[in-house]
Deep mutational scan, measured.
Amino acid sequence: MAAGGDHGSPDSYRSPLASRYASPEMCFVFSDRYKFRTWRQLWLWLAEAEQTLGLPITDEQIQEMKSNLENIDFKMAAEEEKRLRHDVMAHVHTFGHCCPKAAGIIHLGATSCYVGDNTDLIILRNALDLLLPKLARVISRLADFAKERASLPTLGFTHFQPAQLTTVGKRCCLWIQDLCMDLQNLKRVRDDLRFRGVKGTTGTQASFLQLFEGDDHKVEQLDKMVTEKAGFKRAFIITGQTYTRKVDIEVLSVLASLGASVHKICTDIRLLANLKEMEEPFEKQQIGSSAMPYKRNPMRSERCCSLARHLMTLVMDPLQTASVQWFERTLDDSANRRICLAEAFLTADTILNTLQNISEGLVVYPKVIERRIRQELPFMATENIIMAMVKAGGSRQDCHEKIRVLSQQAASVVKQEGGDNDLIERIQVDAYFSPIHSQLDHLLDPSSFTGRASQQVQRFLEEEVYPLLKPYESVMKVKAELCL
């Protein structure tokens, strides 16, 4: 049975990233139509530049190519590739079939990587351009969430054990800070992308030097003109047959890092959902379990974690691919890159769409948070109580021993009897502590235990987050809708 299948058929496997999760716009960027249309555009740009620099290419040939950029006979191309065992030459023939007058000058002087690699770089750039505003929107939604809850005390956790208090907004800023680093890295790697350009079979530009009869300047002009037509500021000066596969490492490393950030955020949300302090959106008709109707599973956060793990592992592909590119190139890269580049971007696209949807509907339960604080705060307040007693004339050592005994009794009630923490009640009825009984409410005010959390939130948002989001103001209103 021949390899390949009808990918629109229910009898043929289709990647869930495309069929179930990723956005239509990201799927289109990695589609065959987008790819092969870009090949034709690159052939047109090459012909236009070659004509401008004096090669015998007519206006009629150029116009014929322009008129057929979208006229792609995919069936013919597939048949040609089956016959020739070469995808680029299959599309040269297919393009030439609908451009008979231009057929002889299509791909003039070029090698397969002229269309293959340059198209990949265009796709990487455009895919990054799709991700950047999506990530900015996630940051914006979380920034709104953090600002609104900047002063809401909550129990902090280290080692997932109760620690000092923080605020809900401050905790959210930990998430935002990681995503801001990801946004900066995505922008950097996007701006650092260079075009492969017009380089020939081993990167020496020998074929173009021959076409222009040894004119170095025209060869350099050709490279520059096509690079500018493709919208790049610069091209690699040095290439082998391909652009260095280190570029793929750079791009997928940034995406993998984004995956790590999203995994951490969504894990926190899942843990908070278990504590009943916070939940992701839950639709009115949504079913959490087929057997347990009360369940409210954090399905979206779980999906993000599941896909983020996949995204983090994909960076190993370009690392290994770059390491086995012998001399000017081997074909070890080809099949692998067809999979890992598309999957990385479709996965990143999915987790950003999902995280935006989550961040637009996060639900906080202040009463649950308050109750958990009441359970733990008495123990945390013991040092403040000791200091207040010393100020009232008591002995630190005597007070410490009193607190120690009462704390152990209260802990026994919590752990052995399943009761509430009654340390404060014990202190309130103990005559030894009568000098500070009137101060206990103040000493137990949760806001006095959150330090500068709310001020940190305000400063972080104003100095770091809002300036970073400013270039994306025009796209901030787009909502994230999930079908599944």
Rank of each mutant, 00 (worst) to 15 (best):
S253C: 13
R329P: 00
T52A: 13
S67N: 12
E25R: 12
E213V: 11
N274R: 04
T166W: 03
R372Q: 04
V219M: 13
V262G: 08
E462S: 13
T227K: 07
Y34N: 13
I424W: 11
P467G: 09
K229S: 12
Y21N: 01
N68I: 05
R404L: 09
A49L: 01
H86F: 02
Y365C: 09
A308M: 05
M76E: 10
V88A: 09
I176E: 04
K276P: 01
S261Y: 02
G54T: 05
L444V: 06
H7L: 13
K276R: 08
Q51G: 08
I287V: 07
C98V: 11
D178C: 06
F208I: 09
H442S: 13
K402H: 07
Q51W: 03
F28A: 08
E279Y: 05
M278C: 10
Y466W: 14
R85E: 00
F95W: 14
T347E: 06
F157Y: 13
K402A: 08
F145Q: 07
G419T: 09
P133I: 13
V115Q: 03
K101Q: 14
A146N: 14
G259R: 03
Q409E: 11
K276F: 09
C340T: 09
Y114P: 01
A235D: 07
D178H: 03
T313N: 10
W43S: 01
K170C: 02
D6A: 12
Q221R: 12
F208Y: 07
I122N: 00
E417P: 04
T58G: 11
L183H: 12
G214E: 13
L132P: 11
V247S: 10
S447P: 12
L362T: 09
F460N: 01
E376A: 04
L121S: 08
L444G: 05
V198I: 15
Q63M: 11
S31I: 02
Q63E: 13
Q325I: 10
F345G: 06
R396P: 04
M312H: 04
I287F: 02
Q184L: 11
G203V: 01
K66N: 09
F327N: 10
S447E: 11
S257K: 05
T450P: 06
L155V: 01
D445G: 09
I249R: 01
E376V: 06
V315W: 11
F74Q: 13
E220K: 08
G169Q: 01
T267P: 06
A3M: 15
L341R: 06
P56C: 08
F232N: 02
T267W: 07
Q439R: 07
K470E: 13
V368I: 03
H97T: 12
R125Y: 02
F236C: 05
D420Q: 05
N185T: 09
E220D: 10
L484Q: 15
K82Q: 13
C399S: 12
